[in-house]
Structure formats: structure tokens, C-alpha cells
Design a protein around this nucleic acid. Structure first.
Lengths: 138, 138
DNA sequence: TATCATCTTAGAACTGTTCTTGTCAATATA
DNA sequence: TATATTGACAAGAACAGTTCTAAGATGATA
């Protein structure tokens, strides 16, 4: 589906070349990039690209539910273009984030909601990834 | 290098008044404070307290497993003196974090570990807390 | 193509965190 | 006791990531 068709859903979201480039970079990306990664990648095509544009665009996409902001990395905000329900593994050594492509059933947790209206859940496992273990063994 | 006996295990961790004050503030605290909160609270008793001391102490306590660092708040690091296994609810409006005092069984997730050696898990529900809902209704 | 709201850029400003420096106290060693 | 070592403190500089500002440029639409 061409990204441009989105314009009919939200005519206030202009499909500028910069935004298309950012969407293009995010599409199918499983690295869970930070703003920094987006900036460096897209700047190759648009050398005048500014950080403000990256943050503005990510914020706009977030507001429209096209990306999710992750909190697992304590050092920077990272973004996930995969908006279908899934969970994450994060390597405490290299900060790599890997998807767990299924959704666990946590309905039984409803009884603990403490008056909250729950809008989302996130399960995250931390550990050491295969690559980091191999590296430290070398 | 000589092996330290069990009773001397922590003799490199001096119990200074500043550290005792920080521990005292954290003990039983269920607010999941940020460094900032610790600083403001402890400074009342020790007006010369420095941010460096707060961060150093929190880092030392983390290293010794006496507090956990949380990642649910994208804007700042927050700390949890409750080190027993439990989960969290976070209000996306006021950033309040509330404990869910039980541990869910996620052993079945082992099959998705993607080569990771898993050392921890964290389940977090996001939503709107009762107070924020009442406030917005007013 | 004229209009208007939105977008982009560049850089400043801000926030939370880490690092550096100088000093001191407590402990270990001779 | 004298001396060395270690750990801790305060103050503030430095740093990284993010947000904000101002002004001009651009895209969508009629």
C-alpha cells in the first residue's frame, strides 16, 4: 500500500519528501532505531535534514499510531514501526532490541489494575544476546 | 587477589550519613522516585547534599541489588527500592507508577528467547489512573 | 496561482545524567 | 606513629538527548 494514500485519512499530515524518507527508512526496520539512527540514515539522502524534523516527524507518527515509542533503553528513546502487538528482548550489554512476535495473554491481570483504565501493555525480557556472549568469550 | 570473607563483603561500601539518609528515604517508598526526588527530599536534612552523591549512591545501591532502575518513564530514570519480583502500572498522563505486587508466570516465553540468556523480565501496563480521570472530568 | 496552514532548518535552550577536580575522612600498611 | 591507599563528598563543568524558537519555504487545496 502506497504511503501517500494516507493523505486521505489526515489531510493535515503533509507528505513531504523528508517524511517519506523517514517512513521509508522505518518501514520494515526491526532495529528499533533511536532518533539519532533515523537522522543519520535519512541525512544521506537529504543532507539538509535537521534533528527537529526527525523529532517532529516521529512525534507526528506516534500521535497517528504509525510508530510506537519504546522505553526499554534507559539512555534514549527508541521507536518501533511494528505496531502490531508483540513484546521485546533487550540485551543489557549492547542495547539491541529484538521482537517477540506473539502477544501473551495477560487478561488475568485485570484484577490488579488498581483503578487504572489500561490502554496498553508491554512485556520486556532483559538478558545477554548471543553475539555479546560470543564476543565476551573470544 | 585475596578473597574477601562474607562478613567483609561490603566493607568497601561505607555507611555515611548521606547514604543512610538516602536509604531512609527510599525504604518503603512506593513512589518510584527519580534522582531529582531523592535529591530534594534528602537535601532538607543535608543542605550541602550534591546531585553527584545521589547518583553515585543510587548507582552503588543498584550494583548491590538494593534498588532497581525502572525504564517505564521515557523522561527520566526512576528507582524502585522494592526488589522482590513484581510488575508495574504507569499512568501515561501523570507518570505515576504503581506496583502490581505479584509475579506473573512467564516461563512459557522461554521458547521465544532468540538465543538470549534471560536475566530479568518486566511487565508494565500503561493507562490512565483514577485520579487523572477524575481530574479531567472536573 | 493565491492562500493559508503546515513544515523545514539552524541553532539556541533546556533537562537529566555523568564526569572532573580538589579535598577530606577512614582504613590499611610499614 | 607516620605514611599510603581508598572511598566519599561537594561544586560545578561537561555532555547527550530532546525540545523549542524564529523565519522563511513548501504542499494542499480551491
Amino acid at each position: 500500500m502506497p504511503v501517500r494514500s494516507e493523505k486521505h485519512r489526515d489531510r493535515r499530515f503533509k507528505m513531504t519528501p523528508q517524511r517519506l524518507a523517514i517512513l521509508d527508512y522505518l518501514k520494515g526496520n526491526v532495529q528499533h532505531p533511536a532518533a539519532d539512527d533515523v537522522f543519520r540514515a535519512v541525512r544521506r539522502k537529504y543532507p539538509t535534514m535537521s534533528f527537529a524534523t526527525v523529532y517532529n516527524t516521529l512525534e507526528a507518527l506516534k500521535k497517528r499510531g504509525m510508530v510506537k515509542e519504546l522505553t526499554g533503553d534507559p539512555d534514549k528513546k527508541r521507536f518501533d514501526p511494528n505496531t502490531s502487538p508483540h513484546h521485546h528482548l533487550i540485551c543489557t550489554n549492547c542495547r539491541k532490541i529484538v521482537d517477540i512476535p506473539v502477544q501473551f495473554d495477560l487478561d488475568f491481570a485485570e484484577q490488579y489494575r488498581e483503578g487504572f483504565v489500561i490502554t496498553g501493555s508491554h512485556i520486556e525480557f532483559s538478558g545477554i544476546c548471543l553475539e555479546c556472549r560470543n564476543r565476551s568469550r573470544a
